[in-house]
Design a protein around this nucleic acid. Structure first.
Lengths: 210, 210
DNA sequence: CAACAACCCTGAACATTGTTCAATACAAAT
DNA sequence: ATTTGTATTGAACAATGTTCAGGGTTGTTG
């Protein structure tokens, strides 16, 4: 009795949680199968009954991280004035804050590289794509005339630009900007990007919209 | 005779070049000491007479990559109208092109993480900082009233934003934007950022400059 | 030229890790 | 209770960065 299937699932959940804790504490490179096995109380070989390999485990943890990130962005989306400009700023800052507060787990999302030939499974790709929808809505309000495809690309670009600022801003403590300064920079540049995109501006607005 | 010191330096150079070639072909994770030793014709142990460890070797390759990147950006800087806006766009596109043409070597610059406690040597940090100076100059032309510190931060932010677009844009082939589209997006968003930063713009330009 | 010291190189050995697998223990079914 | 299929174990394997004692080479000195 004691429903072995449920026990298996329980162990699986424990494994993923243990992996998450270890990555958060010691970084992606601190994740070792033997530590995991000891942590959840089984032989190292048993790990491979719960997940196919380390890649899958890391992606599972990534999925959890992405879900929490998604929630943080959702909260920011509806946590103030519905002005699309300010909503986008809030989302960008929420992204920055999440990365700072979950530094190692957030890094793991991008540091991890699939071993060549093996493909990222669909459920993982879906997780990633879901993030863009947060900035898509405000962009629709800002640019009602533009088509969905164009807006999707813009959403992706905006997201990527903010991601870059966060990534390099949190990189190395030596030259790193202090967090408040980084937040200010992000807010400023997001507003600038939006203003510039709206702009009935001066001379050279040629290539942006076409 | 046969000047052993020069021989050593020759071997060292060979080693770095071999490492560069391997990273370019197989990525950072494809770099193995035994392959390197075979490649340059020595025992695997001998590698450690030429460099302290893999970290140093990777940083040496990174230094070469950064130098070439620096040259590419320099060329872009002076390869067209001296209008600062267009100069910045050219630099951003040159960055994108360099990353695309040197994908694995460029990725290695950011994928590589120092083993904790060990610090990045000075010469490597210098290499990295040098990149910002390319966008610093045009920014001085654009914002003569702002102080050097503020401009340095802006330079860093602009660079980071473009880096983010390139990084996520070249990431996964599945959802990846084709290169010409990415270039167009980068040019558009760089112009937007600049316009937005210049902007005597509408309602909400509060937080950017302060 | 000979003896010697300093240094380099070799290749075997070590430690760490992801992964596999034959043997064992266990659970359920007949 | 016996059988059967599955889960678990822990030893073994392979890959890989790194170290090291021993042998060889180089350059210097008498």
């Amino acid at each position: 009795m004691s429903k072995p299937l449920q026990r298996r699932e329980k162990l699986r959940a424990d494994l993923i949680l243990a992996a998450e804790r270890i990555i958060a504490e010691r970084g992606l490179s601190g994740l070792k199968t033997r530590d995991l096995a000891r942590e959840i109380g089984c032989a190292n070989g048993a790990v491979y009954n719960l997940v196919a390999d380390m890649d899958e485990l890391i992606l599972r943890v990534g999925s959890r991280t992405l879900r929490r990130l998604d929630e943080a962005l959702s909260a920011a989306e509806s946590a103030g004035a519905p002005l699309p400009q300010e909503t986008l700023v809030r989302i960008a800052l929420a992204y920055c804050d999440f990365a700072a507060e979950n530094l190692q787990l957030w890094r793991a999302l991008f540091e991890h590289r699939m071993e060549a030939d093996k493909v990222v499974p669909d459920w993982s790709v879906d997780d990633q794509m879901r993030l863009f929808r947060h900035i898509y809505q405000p962009l629709v309000s800002l640019f009602p005339k533009r088509g969905p495809e164009e807006l999707e690309i813009t959403a992706r670009s905006l997201f990527s630009a903010v991601h870059g600022m966060v990534a390099l801003g949190l990189e190395q403590k030596l030259v790193a900007v202090p967090l408040p300064a980084l937040r200010k920079e992000i807010a400023g540049l997001v507003r600038a990007m939006i203003d510039g995109l709206i702009a009935p501006a001066g001379q050279n607005r040629a290539a942006a919209g076409s």
